Amino acid sequence: MNQTFKVSGMTCSHCVNAVQTAILKTDNTAGIQVDLPSGLVSINSKLPRSALVAAIEEAGYKVSSP
């Protein structure tokens, strides 16, 4: 299932990598697309939204609806 999140706090490629790594630790088969300028993260995963949000927030970023 494809889900889109608005992630606050991403300012550089290191931040993008940190978010991607956090998601992949939760679901190593997830497809992830990050648009740094808009802060939008699209994730194709079978996990529930709450699990993906928790992974991103544990990495130190704030998640809201797009």
Rank of each mutant, 00 (worst) to 15 (best):
L47F: 07
A54F: 03
T11K: 03
G31A: 15
A30F: 13
A30S: 07
G60E: 02
S13G: 06
S50R: 07
V34T: 03
G39F: 01
Y61T: 08
Q3R: 05
S65M: 01
I43F: 08
S65L: 00
S13F: 02
D35H: 04
S65Y: 00
Y61R: 11
A59W: 09
S38Q: 03
T21H: 04
G60F: 14
S64G: 14
G9V: 11
V53Q: 10
N28V: 14
R49T: 06
Q33S: 10
E58Q: 15
A59I: 12
H14I: 10
E57K: 05
A59E: 13
S64C: 12
S45L: 15
A22F: 01
M10Q: 02
E57M: 13
L52E: 02
I56R: 05
V34G: 02
T29V: 12
Y61V: 12
A18C: 04
N2R: 10
S38N: 01
C15N: 13
D35C: 09
G31T: 07
T21E: 10
G39I: 00
A51S: 13
T29N: 06
T21V: 03
C12E: 05
A54R: 13
K6C: 00
S50Y: 06
G39T: 03
A51R: 09
I32F: 00
P48H: 06
L36T: 13
K6V: 00
N2V: 09
I43M: 07
L40F: 04
N44F: 11
V53E: 08
P66C: 09
I56L: 10
E58G: 06
V34M: 01
A59Y: 03
C15Y: 04
P66H: 15
G31H: 12
N2Q: 15
L47R: 13
S8C: 09
L47I: 03
L40H: 08
Q33D: 10
Q20D: 07
A30N: 02
Y61P: 14
C15T: 10
N2K: 10
G39Q: 02
T29Q: 07
S13H: 01
S38L: 03
S64P: 09
V7K: 06
M1K: 08
V41T: 05
C15R: 02
A22L: 02
S8T: 05
N2M: 10
C12M: 03
L40C: 10
C15E: 12
A59M: 06
Q3M: 02
M10P: 10
G31E: 11
L36A: 11
N44W: 14
D27R: 02
K25E: 09
E58L: 09
T26P: 07
C15F: 06
N44G: 06
K62D: 08
L40G: 11
D35E: 10
Q3P: 05
Y61F: 11
I23Q: 01
N17H: 04
I56V: 11
V63C: 09
T11W: 14
